[in-house]
Design a binder for these strands. Structure first.
Lengths: 137, 137
DNA sequence: CAATCTGTAATGATTACTATTACAGTACGT
DNA sequence: ACGTACTGTAATAGTAATCATTACAGATTG
C-alpha cells in the first residue's frame, strides 16, 4: 500500500485543527514531511469527493468542508487505496485446476477481507483521530 | 503487499490436491506462473513453521504436514505478510502536534485493522480454499 | 500586474519486488 | 562410489511501484 491513505488522514487531521482558516499545501507538507505537490495531489482527490474545499490565490489553501464526525477512515480508504489489499497475481497455468481457478477464489476472499476491514475503519472518524492525537500529546 | 501470501496459498492448495506424493518446486511454479526459486523461498518459510515437509534428492519435493483444516489463511498471512497493511510513514515534523503524534496513532489503528482482518481470514482454512477451487471449476 | 496560492503533467530518483544465475547440500538408484 | 534430481540459499540483475522535484498554467487578491 502506498501512503496516500495515511497522508490523507494526516492532512484532514491537520485541517481539523485549523477550522477557521485555510491551510496551504506547504504548511501541511511541512507537518507530514513530504513534498507539497504530493499533498496537493491527495487533497485534490479529497476535494473531488467533497470532504474539503480549496481556494487558489493569496490567502487560499484548504479547509474542511464537512463536520469532522461525518468523515470516517473507510471513506478515505475507499478513495485513496481501494483494492490495495489484493496483490497482483501473475498469469497462472490454465491447464492446472489450481492455476486456473485460484485467482478468482483469491479475489473474492481478498474482496471480503477488505470489506471486513472496512467495518473496522468505519468506527474511526476524523474527530476520533483528532482526539487520539490530542490525547497522545 | 507482495505476493508471498498468495503464492503460499496457491502452493498449499496445490499440495492439498496431491496428498499422496511429493510435489517439486518446478511443478508448483508451473501452476503458479512464477520462478521455482521463488516457490522454494516461500515454501521454506512454511516448512519452518511446520505446515509442510520437504525432502531433497530424487523423488523429493514438498508435501503437506498437517490436516488441511488445521491451516487457515490468518496463519499464513502472519508468516508471509504481517505488517503489510501499515505503510511506512515518512519522518514527520516533531514540532507539530499532528506530525509528532500521528504516527503512533496510525500505527495502533493499522494494527487493529490487521487484527480485525485476521478474524475474517481465520474463517478460511486450506480445506475451504480447496473446496472453492474445485467448485469454481 | 505582481505576488501567492492551487492544479497537474512530466521527468528523474529511489526503493520494493521479482526473475535469474550459481552453486552447495542431500537423497536415491545403479 | 558416482551421476542424477531434488532442496536451500545467496548474489545479481531486471522491472515496477513509489516518491521527489521541476515546470508551468490558472485563479485570486491587493
Amino acid at each position: 500500500m502506498n501512503s496516500d491513505f495515511t497522508l490523507a488522514i494526516h492532512s484532514l487531521t491537520f485541517l481539523a485543527l485549523q477550522p477557521d482558516r485555510m491551510s496551504t499545501s506547504d504548511s501541511i507538507s511541512e507537518s507530514a514531511g513530504v513534498h507539497p505537490v504530493r499533498i496537493r495531489k491527495v487533497l485534490s482527490l479529497l476535494k473531488k469527493h467533497g470532504f474539503i474545499k480549496s481556494k487558489e490565490g493569496i490567502g487560499g489553501g484548504f479547509i474542511f468542508g464537512l463536520d469532522l464526525s461525518e468523515v470516517n477512515l473507510w471513506d478515505i480508504y475507499k478513495i485513496t487505496s481501494e483494492g490495495a489489499l489484493k496483490p497482483k497475481c501473475p498469469e497462472s497455468n490454465e491447464n492446472c485446476i489450481v492455476g486456473a481457478n485460484m485467482q478468482k477464489v483469491l479475489c473474492s476472499i481478498f474482496f471480503g477481507a477488505e470489506e471486513h476491514m472496512g467495518e473496522y475503519l468505519k468506527d474511526y472518524t476524523i474527530k476520533e483521530v483528532v482526539d487520539l492525537v490530542k490525547k497522545s500529546q
